[in-house]
Write a protein that binds this DNA or RNA. Structure first.
Lengths: 235, 235
DNA sequence: ATTATCTATAGATCTATAGATAATGC
DNA sequence: ATTATCTATAGATCTATAGATAATGC
């Protein structure tokens, strides 16, 4: 085997980069997404220039279009990756459990997802620019997730396990409390992701339970996997 | 009294506006702040141009500098008005109550403040651009508020009323749960501000109480104004 | 004279695109 | 031939500022 063929293995097709650096770790599109996620989260979307994103991965500004035709496409792809894991986790939720148990399972997996990963991906949805219609697809997917919360909470209210509050309030608040994690949970801080996730999930559940004293029992039942006896209906 | 002097009353010094509209309702600086708050919250800081702000109050872009030398100064003033009310509310907090009662009082006033007003002023602090050093004064004030939470929560853990969790976790989570309101509470939605505020404050308190069953008792005690009997210390 | 505005613009961006170039692949 | 990059730039911003102007105040 000549040294020629050895070199060819590590080299890539296409004009070399201006800075001379060779791309080793595969997928450039992935690198762009990762770099952009960090920049968007720290500086904001509009305040992050395509030049900055390109520089972060060792490209010139104009070369980005080879991977993403417009800046917006990068954010769209990142947002997509935000909802999808939560939505598919929802599907695996056993329906044999009583609603308050299912709610705990939903809450705790959701909180775990939000605190997982190196980057605060889910935080991107709070960027004001994301409110624009251009990102409608994302908001539709997210609404699906919220609808699952609504189903479970409504069932819990019917069974008497959850307080007979306004459903909209209960759903909005529960959903909102969970998502508070993306604001304050700090991956570089002292608090462990699992502790933060559990604390928030527990507070959210406590907020809707009819009998707050039952909370640790509900959590234990969910985690032992055994469906506990449902609370007696109120009416 | 001539009609001349009558006219003078309603007219103002200075060159008339280009659009011919006459400013009636006093303070232009306040109008700028209000318009900017709405635009920043909806579109983001960088994505809002000084031209848009000016247009919203019937001025030309260049005329803004008469009131605020730079765009940043508008946001700084808005952020100032965000922390100050919360900080002064904290001062009025009776120290004769046990910590869990004081915590409830702090939580409920804070949540009330966050949901009050026509505009989601507090939401501005989540704008990514605000993280920059330029707004350090704001973050320092906010840290003072957080320190009050820490004092009270630490005291509650010592007294045994609050769960013996990591203080940092408890403070970060409690503070974060409260602030989740700025993300999801919708002034144009169906949920009343007072309901949203109460739900969140209650969930946050439930998250840290040693005995969740006590929650409604603690809240009732705080609201009747009578200091209840403190829980027995753990050690 | 003072004030609140205006108009016009310099200088600095920023994004998307056209077209060139330097690799590998066949 | 194909691919991944480059360089250069058009066109559209955006912010801050200079200097003019049209009111009122005295």
């Amino acid at each position: 085997m000549s040294s020629d063929s050895l070199n060819r293995r590590t080299n890539r097709v296409g004009r070399p980069r201006a800075d001379g650096r060779v791309v080793v770790e595969g997928d450039v599109a992935e690198q762009i997404l990762e770099a952009a996620a960090g920049l968007f989260a720290r500086q904001g979307y509009t305040a992050t220039s395509t030049r900055q994103i390109a520089a972060a991965v060792g490209l010139r500004q104009g070369s980005l279009s080879h991977y993403f035709a417009r800046k917006k496409d990068i954010l769209t792809e990142l947002l997509d990756r935000t909802v999808e894991p939560a939505l598919s986790a929802v599907d695996g939720l056993g329906s044999e459990f009583p609603p308050e148990t299912r709610l705990w399972l939903l809450l705790s997996t959701d909180c775990a997802i939000l605190t997982a990963g190196e980057q605060n991906l889910a935080g991107l949805m709070l960027l004001p620019e994301v409110r624009s219609d251009e990102f409608g697809r994302f908001w539709a997917r997210r609404q699906q997730l919220k609808d699952r919360y609504r189903d479970i909470i409504a069932a819990g209210i019917r069974s008497g396990a959850l307080a007979r509050n306004d459903v909209t309030l209960a759903v909005d608040a529960t959903f909102g409390l969970v998502e508070s994690l993306v604001n304050w949970f700090d991956r570089d801080g002292d608090v462990a992701a699992s502790d933060a996730a559990r604390h928030v999930a527990r507070a959210a559940l406590a907020g809707v339970l009819a009998d707050p004293a039952r909370i640790d029992q509900v959590i234990a039942a969910a985690e032992s996997g055994a469906p506990e006896i449902a609370a007696a209906p109120i009416d």
